[in-house]
Design a protein around this nucleic acid. Structure first.
Lengths: 237, 237
DNA sequence: TGCACAAAAATCGTATGCAATCTTTTTTGC
DNA sequence: GCAAAAAAGATTGCATACGATTTTTGTGCA
């Protein structure tokens, strides 16, 4: 980490809420699957873990519940979300609606510096795919999500960017839950194709490629209900 | 208020958070323009007003800040959002992306009972347009937003529905801020047309009508910066 | 009068305490 | 031995308290 990063994160944690930094760390843990769906996140535990009071921990959990990554039940507490197949479909239906439009917008605003950033992102994805093991696989899911977030930031609409942050985070959960392990690496070449479309400012192509890409991600999921869904829910599993 | 309503709201306030009901009331007040943009919402004041502690008031304000209706500054407090013209454009760009898709989805799921609800909604809109005065105008903006929320609920995607709730609320703020008063009533006939397209399950028509409708709403805004924008921001006005 | 500076008031950020609710364990009756 | 009831323990919901920060007020000096 260089000096600039140190200053930035120092200023960050000092200026903005501690709750927000806790939220970010918890979100990373959920998206990385270090916290399994259904895991209880008690206020006290989170508080002692991050060395803050329950008040702050509670605020962080409230934020995550707004994002749909955590489900809170009154008088019972907060749990890592366990999206149902139906929820998973809604997540991808939302992405199909939003992301092709984001790709078009990004085509109209992308700069040379952005392209450089995209290429760096693609390189990082490639590294994680080359590696093996569960840690690399988690990093791969994360990096794949970051690609979509980078695109959203280039599109220049702060509102859509926030929606995408939520959708990508929830997608990561869904992929971790329902993903068929073998087929995950195929997204990389599609990302490369989208960057190519961006580079040539071909918004129609970028939009089409993005739509296909989302379809492929969803097709790689196994959204059939495994056991009886009522039972699964009853067991909170 | 009839018995059913009493029971409903009693169960509501008992079952779910008090913070949530405070948020809803504040949101209504903001959307109705009873709380002007820039108004300070101090935790203590909100708390005493609703007869709860600062803890609960703070949670409600945090929710509103997630929705973009309230802007919070550390150690300074919460203020009713004052969206810039650029933010206003982003709100409508987002709606252009999402709502035509919602209209298509709604076409595929709309029931006879939904159509009845839409007709009732249109009637209510018509009543408020016929009335005059500032109160009727506020109700008219609210009712117009409710039409879009009804459509989102028919579309059957909970995630998109929540996005739309946020977008409609922010739109109401934007319209209140930048709307040209004379031209607001024109949306009603377009709503009627959209319901007609729904009734005949013509998803292409519904989608096109929706897109035009959003364009018309945005065209009725005056998004030119009035004074120097830096000055306006500096004055927090 | 205008400005700089200090004291006071208001407000926020956070920790902590207590009552209410839920969960688990123990006890009791059959 | 097992089911139901009761008690103990844990956890949340909420109010309140206190230090930190910001805003306002008041005062002296040019």
């Amino acid at each position: 980490m260089n000096i600039a990063d140190q200053v930035y994160s120092a200023a960050d944690s000092a200026t903005q809420d501690r709750a927000q930094t806790i939220r970010d760390q918890l979100r990373d843990a959920i998206v990385d699957r270090r916290l399994a769906p259904g895991t209880k996140l008690s206020e006290g535990e989170v508080g002692t873990l991050f060395d803050v009071s329950r008040t702050v921990a509670r605020a962080a959990l409230q934020m995550l519940s707004f994002e749909g990554l955590v489900r809170t039940e009154r008088n019972r507490g907060a749990f890592v979300a366990n999206p149902s197949p139906e929820e998973a479909r809604q997540v991808f239906a939302s992405r199909r609606l939003i992301e092709p439009g984001i790709a078009i917008a990004a085509c109209g605003r992308v700069t040379a510096a952005d392209i450089v950033a995209f290429k760096a992102q693609l390189d990082e994805e490639g590294r994680f795919i080359a590696e093996r093991g569960p840690h690399a696989r988690r990093s791969e899911i994360k990096a794949s999500g970051d690609f979509h977030l980078l695109l959203a930031s280039v599109a220049g609409n702060a509102i859509l960017q926030r929606f995408m942050e939520e959708l990508v985070a929830r997608s990561s959960l869904v992929i971790a839950l329902y993903g068929r392990s073998g087929a995950s690496a195929c997204g990389h070449s599609e990302h490369t194709g989208i960057v190519g479309a961006l580079e040539s400012r071909d918004s129609g192509l970028a939009s089409r490629l993005m739509l296909h890409h989302i379809d492929h991600i969803e097709a790689d999921l196994d959204l059939r209900v495994r056991a009886g869904p009522a039972l699964r829910e009853a067991l909170n599993f």
